[in-house]
């Protein structure tokens, strides 16, 4: 049995949870300061999760409702497992293999799918509207995201993230080497974080928080845990693909924090889009830059 792998996986999950939670707390603090408030302490999300896990009763709507949050957290953890956290060293390499970038494109959808099934079981109309909005929005931002990643894979003939990181050690960061794919990826990434103006799924005053509206207590705690792990996984994936990865944990935190702050700060000053506005946005400039990125990749290899 490969104990160092198991130890690395455990440390990775704990790191992802802690960092994701702290980033969430920092985003709440930044929001509060921009609105001229004091705001909650940055460890507030830990207290929220601890409180949610110490709730004493739980509702029962059906089996899928119990499995939905579990599915979400399984998918988040699985996504995290295939993202190389650091460039070198035994720890944090986890389970990646050649071709994992293609695998991750599929894997990143599973969490939302599980949540959609779980929310559908509860029978709340707000959940159903939230799920339909979420799937519509996914159709929106997946297009520029896939265009960006496929442009990179075509241009550098690499489908593994570790391969891309090694490549970036030689030719520099891909955000400069293939800028159009980077712009498309970044704009899609802003949508993937589900912050305002793209928070049409979880719109609290409009949809009563959408898919998790019937989930309380431990289910909501599981969803928050899953969300923080998935946030960290997405950030590290983005840093690995476009910003050359990170060789130590401080560099990783710096890079992921800068990327994380872009959707947060853009979100604070933007009101919420409607569903069709959101999709139209993603099929506009982000897709345009994605297509330009594909043409650029084709030009560079021919």
């Amino acid at each position: 049995m490969n104990w160092s792998l198991i130890l690395g996986i455990t440390i990775t999950i704990i790191t992802a949870f802690t960092v994701g939670m702290f980033y969430g707390g920092i985003s709440r603090k930044v929001t509060a300061r921009i609105q001229n408030r004091v705001g909650p302490p940055i460890w507030q999300n830990f207290l929220d999760v601890l409180k949610l896990y110490s709730k004493e009763s739980a509702i029962h709507h059906g089996w899928m409702q119990h499995l939905g949050p579990l599915w979400a957290i399984t998918a988040s953890t699985a996504t995290l497992m295939f993202v190389p956290i650091l460039n070198n060293g035994q720890f944090y390499q986890n389970l990646n293999f050649s071709g994992d970038l293609i695998f991750l494109m599929y894997m990143m959808v599973f969490g939302q799918l599980g949540m959609a099934l779980g929310a559908g079981q509860t029978g709340n109309p707000n959940s159903a509207i939230g799920v339909s909005r979420g799937l519509s929005q996914m159709v929106g931002y997946k297009v520029p995201w896939l265009l960006a990643l496929v442009a990179i894979m075509v241009q550098y003939k690499a489908t593994s993230i570790t391969g891309l990181i090694e490549l970036q050690n030689q030719i520099g960061w891909l955000m400069f080497a293939s800028p159009f794919a980077f712009i498309a990826g970044l704009l899609a990434f802003i949508g993937m974080m589900h912050y305002s103006p793209f928070d049409i799924v979880f719109a609290p005053s409009e949809l009563a928080s959408g898919p998790p509206s019937e989930f309380g207590g431990k289910y909501l705690g599981l969803m928050m845990t899953s969300g923080s792990i998935f946030t960290f996984a997405k950030l590290v994936l983005f840093v690995d693909v476009f910003l050359g990865g990170a060789s130590n944990i401080l560099e990783l935190l710096l890079k992921t924090f800068v990327i994380y702050m872009i959707p947060v700060i853009y979100g604070i000053v933007s009101p919420r889009y409607r569903t069709e506005q959101s999709i139209r946005y993603f099929w506009g400039w982000p897709t345009f830059f994605g297509v330009i990125g594909m043409l650029y990749a084709w030009y560079m290899i021919s």
């Binding site: 408030r37 004091v38 509702i59 609290p204 928080s209 989930f215 909501l220």
Partner: peptide, 13 residues
């Protein structure tokens, strides 16, 4: 919110 008080959307939460 500085006391950790925030709005919940639904009774379940």
């Amino acid at each position: 919110e500085r006391f950790g008080i925030r709005g919940a959307a639904t009774p379940r939460q």
